Simulated assay, not measured.
Amino acid sequence: MLKIGLQLYTLREELEQDFEGTLRKVAELGYAGVEFYHYFDRSPAEIAALLQETGLVALGAHRPYDTLLNETEQEIRYNLEIGNSRVIVPYLTEEQRNWEHVAADFRKIGEACKAQGATLLYHNHEFEFTEKNGELTVFDSIFASVPADLLEVELDTCWAYYGGYDPVEYIRNYAGRLPVIHLKDMKKREDGSAETVVLGEGEVPLHAIIEAAAAAGVEWAVVEQDFCSRPPLESVADSMKWIQTYAAQGGKVHV
Results as ranks from 00 to 15, higher is better:
F139W: 07
R77W: 04
H101Y: 12
F106G: 05
A237V: 01
G200Q: 01
V223Q: 01
R177P: 05
E95T: 07
G33A: 08
N79F: 10
D105R: 02
A208D: 15
A160H: 01
E135V: 10
N133R: 13
A148F: 10
P231G: 06
M1A: 04
G176E: 10
A32V: 09
S85K: 14
A115C: 02
P167Y: 00
K3T: 00
I209W: 10
P90K: 03
E169Q: 08
W220M: 01
N173R: 15
I88P: 02
E75Y: 00
E224T: 12
A103E: 05
M240Q: 01
L69C: 07
L121I: 03
T137L: 10
Q244S: 06
K252Q: 15
T10K: 13
A213L: 13
G110S: 03
T196R: 04
V57D: 12
I210D: 06
V253H: 05
K241R: 15
T22H: 14
V197W: 02
A112Q: 12
I109M: 15
G164K: 07
G60M: 07
H182D: 10
Y31D: 06
I109L: 09
A213H: 09
P90F: 02
Y165N: 07
C113V: 13
D226F: 09
Y39K: 08
A104V: 09
Y165G: 02
G117C: 01
V89Q: 04
L155E: 12
K132A: 14
I88E: 00
Y78T: 06
V146W: 02
I142T: 05
G164S: 11
V57H: 12
D238G: 00
A49W: 00
S43Y: 03
G83F: 08
N79L: 15
K241I: 09
A32R: 15
K187Y: 06
T72Q: 11
A104C: 06
L68E: 01
R86V: 12
H182N: 10
T119Q: 15
E28Q: 15
R86I: 06
D238E: 13
T72M: 05
Y39Q: 08
L51T: 07
Y31P: 07
T54F: 12
R177G: 01
K241Y: 05
Q249R: 14
F139T: 01
V223I: 05
A27G: 14
M186I: 11
Q244D: 04
K3G: 03
V87W: 06
R177K: 10
P90M: 03
G110H: 04
Q116E: 13
Y39S: 10
I88C: 06
E35M: 12
Y246E: 00
V218N: 08
T130C: 00
F143D: 04
A58N: 08
L80D: 11
D140M: 03
R172D: 09
Q17A: 15
E20A: 13
E135D: 14
N70F: 00
N173W: 02
W220T: 01
I243C: 03
E46P: 03
V26P: 07
G164A: 02
T157L: 04
H62T: 00
H182K: 05
D185A: 02
Y78I: 08
A61W: 07
D140N: 12
E135F: 06
